[in-house]
Design a protein around this nucleic acid. Structure first.
Length: 434
RNA sequence: GGCUCUAUCGUCUAACGGUUAGGACGGAUCCUUCUCAAGGAUCAAAUCAGGGUUCGAUUCCCUGUAGAGUCACCA
C-alpha cells in the first residue's frame, strides 16, 4: 500500500501576535512535515471579522519567516467562504444541519438565521498520537452552531472543510483543542470527509503554570527579536519544551531537529517555558556567530561613538541578549573608551595599601609600558604580570591600574583595557592619576 | 461544577519492570590575573500519597490528592 504524503498545517487566527505557545505548535507541525518529506501549510483563520487584523497576520508571517519556518502553501480562510457555503447548503439539504431563527445573543432583539449542526448524539472516540484513546460524549454539546448565517461559517465548520480540501493528514495543535475534536469529527462524518490523525500537544505554560497567552505577558516572537535574541536560540529552546530526543545533546540546529524529531517522544504533560535557559542558549549561539555577523548585531545596539571593533570582545562576553548592550551603555560601562574617566581617588588603593606605594607602583607600570615595543594584549599582560608577581599581592598594582583606566569598580581586566586604549592614552591616564 | 488530560530535582528532562534515579538551566563553593564577564572543577537538589500486581515498581492497575485544559452566534 502506498504511503500517503504527509500534510500538516499551522492555522493561527490573526487575533494577536504570535507567541511561543502558538509558535511551538507551528514548529512541531513543521518538523513533522519536513521529517516525513511532507507538506507544511500555513492557513490564516480569519473568519472572525471583528477580531482579526492585517497587522496580526503580518506579525505571524514575519515571525515564521524570522524563525525560518518556510511553508509550502498559504491559505486565508476568509477566501474560502463560498466553499463553506456550498458545504453548509449541502448539509442542510442532507439534514445534517438546519437553519434556526433565533434572537441575537447581544440582546439587540434582532432575529437571525443561524445554522446549527444536527447532533446525532453519539459517543466519539479517536486515537490521539500523543494522548492515546480519547472518548467523549457529544450529547451534551447539543445542536451546536456552525455558522452565524449561511455566509458566515464558524470555526468548527471552516476548519473541517479546509483541512479536508487541503488534504491535511496530520493535525498537530494545542491540547486546548481536544474538546473541539469530537465536534469536528462529527462534521467530518456528516460531509463524508476522512478523519485525519490528531496529535494534541501539551500546553506551554508561563511561570504561573497557566497556559501561555498574550494576556499573561507571553512575549511575541517579534519581541524576542527586538530584544536581540537569535532565531536559532528561540527555535532550539521552544523545540525542546514538551519534547526531546532522549540524548544529552542540548544544542540543535534546525536540520538536526528535523532529523531527530519524533512525535512519539512528545510528552503528555504541560511544561513551563524557562526564560533562564533561553538566555543561556542565546549566549551559546552568540558564541557561535562569525565575527562579521557578531559585529553587525552589536553595532545595531551601540551609539555611533562606541561602534568600534576593539570593544566587541568585551561586549560579547558580557551579554546574554543584544539588548543588554543598551544597559551597558546606560550604566556607562563603556565610557572609558571615549573619555578619560573622572576617578574617585579614594578608591584607587588596593585594600589598605598606602597611597605612596600605589603611586610608586603606577610609576613602575608606566616605565614597563613605555618599554613595550609592540603594545598588544599578550605583551602587556606578560610584562605587567611579571612585575605584579614580585609584589606580596598582585592586586596592589592590578587594582589601581585597572581602576585608573576604567574609573569603574567592576570592569574588564587592565590588560584588555590598555590594549584597547593604546599606549599613549593608557600612559596619559596613569600619569594623571599619579 | 460536568467532561478531558496530566503528575521524576526550583525549571526543562533521561531511565525494555532490575541504575549509587542520569543530563541541562538556575543556585552554592572553589580555581583561573584585584574586580566584572568568560572558562574549569566540585556540591546541594526529585520519583505527589496510599493501596495492589510482581522475586523486584519512577515505570503496570486502582483510589485519593494536586494541577491544567475546555465547556461561545472566538479560534
Amino acid at each position: 500500500m502506498e504511503q500517503k504524503k504527509v500534510v500538516t498545517r499551522f492555522a493561527p487566527s490573526p487575533t494577536g501576535k504570535l507567541h511561543s505557545g502558538a509558535y511551538r505548535t507551528a514548529i512541531f507541525s513543521y518538523l513533522f512535515a519536513r521529517k516525513n518529506n511532507g507538506k507544511f501549510i500555513l492557513r490564516i483563520e480569519d473568519t472572525d471579522k471583528e477580531r482579526s487584523t492585517k497587522e496580526n497576520e503580518g506579525n505571524i508571517l514575519e515571525s515564521l519567516n524570522w524563525l525560518g519556518l518556510e511553508y509550502d502553501e498559504f491559505f486565508r480562510q476568509s477566501e474560502n467562504v463560498n466553499r463553506h457555503k456550498e458545504i453548509l447548503e449541502k448539509m442542510i439539504g442532507d439534514g445534517h444541519a438546519y437553519i434556526s431563527k433565533e434572537e441575537a445573543k447581544d440582546g439587540s432583539g434582532i432575529i437571525k438565521e443561524i445554522v446549527r449542526f444536527k447532533n446525532p448524539n453519539e459517543d466519539v472516540s479517536f486515537v490521539d498520537e500523543i494522548k492515546g484513546l480519547i472518548t467523549m460524549h457529544t450529547a451534551d454539546l447539543g445542536d451546536f452552531v456552525i455558522a452565524k448565517n449561511i455566509n458566515e461559517p464558524l470555526f468548527h465548520l471552516a476548519v473541517v472543510v479546509d483541512d479536508f480540501d487541503e488534504g491535511v493528514t496530520h493535525i498537530i495543535r494545542g491540547e486546548d483543542h481536544v474538546s473541539n475534536t469530537p465536534r469536528q469529527i462529527l462534521i467530518q462524518r456528516a460531509i463524508g470527509a476522512p478523519t485525519p490523525i490528531y496529535a494534541h500537544l501539551p500546553l506551554v505554560l508561563g511561570d504561573d503554570k497557566q497556559k501561555l497567552s498574550k494576556r499573561k505577558g507571553a512575549l511575541a516572537i517579534t519581541e524576542y527579536r527586538e530584544q536581540g535574541y537569535l532565531p536559532e536560540a528561540l527555535l532550539n529552546m521552544v523545540s525542546m519544551v514538551g519534547w526531546n530526543p532522549g540524548t544529552e545533546q542540548e544544542l540543535f540546529s534546525k536540520e538536526e531537529l528535523i532529523k531527530e524529531f519524533d512525535l512519539a517522544k512528545v510528552h503528555k504533560s504541560p511544561a513551563v517555558f524557562n526564560q533562564e535557559k533561553l538566555n543561556w542558549l542565546n549566549k551559546e549561539y552568540i558564541k557561535k556567530l562569525n565575527t562579521e555577523v557578531l559585529k553587525n548585531k552589536i553595532f545595531e545596539f551601540l551609539p555611533i561613538e562606541l561602534q568600534n571593533e576593539k570593544l566587541i570582545p568585551i561586549i560579547s562576553d558580557r551579554i546574554t541578549k543584544f539588548s543588554d548592550i543598551k544597559e551597558m551603555v546606560a550604566n556607562k560601562e563603556l565610557d572609558f573608551f571615549i573619555n578619560a574617566p573622572a576617578i574617585d581617588i579614594s578608591k584607587i588603593n588596593y585594600k589598605d595599601t598606602a597611597p605612596e606605594k600605589t603611586k610608586e607602583y603606577l610609576e613602575n607600570v608606566i616605565k614597563i609600558l613605555e618599554s613595550i615595543p609592540d603594545f598588544n594584549l599578550e605583551n602587556i599582560k606578560n610584562t605587567i604580570m611579571e612585575y605584579a608577581n614580585t609584589l606580596p599581592s598582585r592586586g596592589e598594582v592590578l587594582h589601581p591600574m585597572r581602576f585608573t583606566l576604567s574609573g569603574l569598580e567592576k570592569s574588564p581586566d587592565p590588560f584588555t583595557i590598555a590594549s584597547i586604549l593604546g599606549k599613549n592614552e593608557t600612559i596619559s591616564r596613569l600619569q594623571k592619576a599619579i
